[in-house]
Design a protein around this nucleic acid. Structure first.
Lengths: 116, 116
DNA sequence: TATACACTGAACCAAATGGTTCAGTATTCG
DNA sequence: CGAATACTGAACCATTTGGTTCAGTGTATA
């Protein structure tokens, strides 16, 4: 059984629970951006966007670097592996309780192949 | 491109951002339980646990049924499919930005097989 | 050098969160 | 019937959240 880091999961899921922050992550997946650009795109004050970026940064989902007067934001080191794993194992549990055995076994085989 | 329901994602991720609630889900994956049993197991007042259950219920992750004086909680209809999909597509984005092309392609092939 | 620009920090605000206690109501059991 | 059980709702509380404005600081530019 995998052991999950509760504080990490807490911070990551909380960071993902806001549509603006999910939007920022999707944006940064396309291209890096400054706080001003993000604030502009999500129709928010600079200060407001800064707070979201801080939340994402603390969750490890974003890193930032300030050069001159511009702070550039990029995707961070966290790749949501633990979170994906938690959700997948939950889905297994769910399936085991509600699906017929065939479906569960198929699912397990599929996962085995994927993980091997 | 898949379209995500922001309110659903908001509610589900917020529900998952609390360790107690994740614990309740894991518990209910093993066996259904009453509010009293859950409150007991997670060392919390009945009222406190009730609130968590309401949050999970509103996110669609738990359903409850009151028979006599006991309210029984079970896993709900929501199987975190959208949430898993969001995270997976994020992971793709992430990989595309940071990994070498081989890794990305391998990952895409893997996903194709899994989804087929 | 003066001005505009990008960000930052403090203060404030309303609403939500995560918990509690206390006072019920309804149900079961002896 | 009377007592114990299981939950419910209201009220309260401290903290966090998601946003704002306002007053800076530091950097680039005309």
């Amino acid at each position: 059984m995998v052991q999950y880091s509760q504080p990490n999961l807490d911070a990551a899921f909380a960071a993902l629970s806001d549509a603006t922050r999910r939007g920022v992550l999707e944006q940064l997946g396309q291209a890096e951006a400054s706080i001003t650009e993000l604030a502009d795109r999500f129709q928010m004050t600079l200060t407001g966007m800064k707070k979201h970026v801080v939340v994402l940064e603390q969750a490890g989902l974003v890193t930032t670097e300030k050069i001159g007067r511009v702070r550039t934001c990029r995707l961070g080191a966290r790749r949501l592996e633990e979170e994906a794993a938690w959700i997948e194992s939950y889905r297994q549990l769910w399936a085991a309780r509600f699906d017929d055995l065939d479906t569960v076994l198929e699912d397990m085989k599929r996962r085995e192949k994927t993980n091997g």
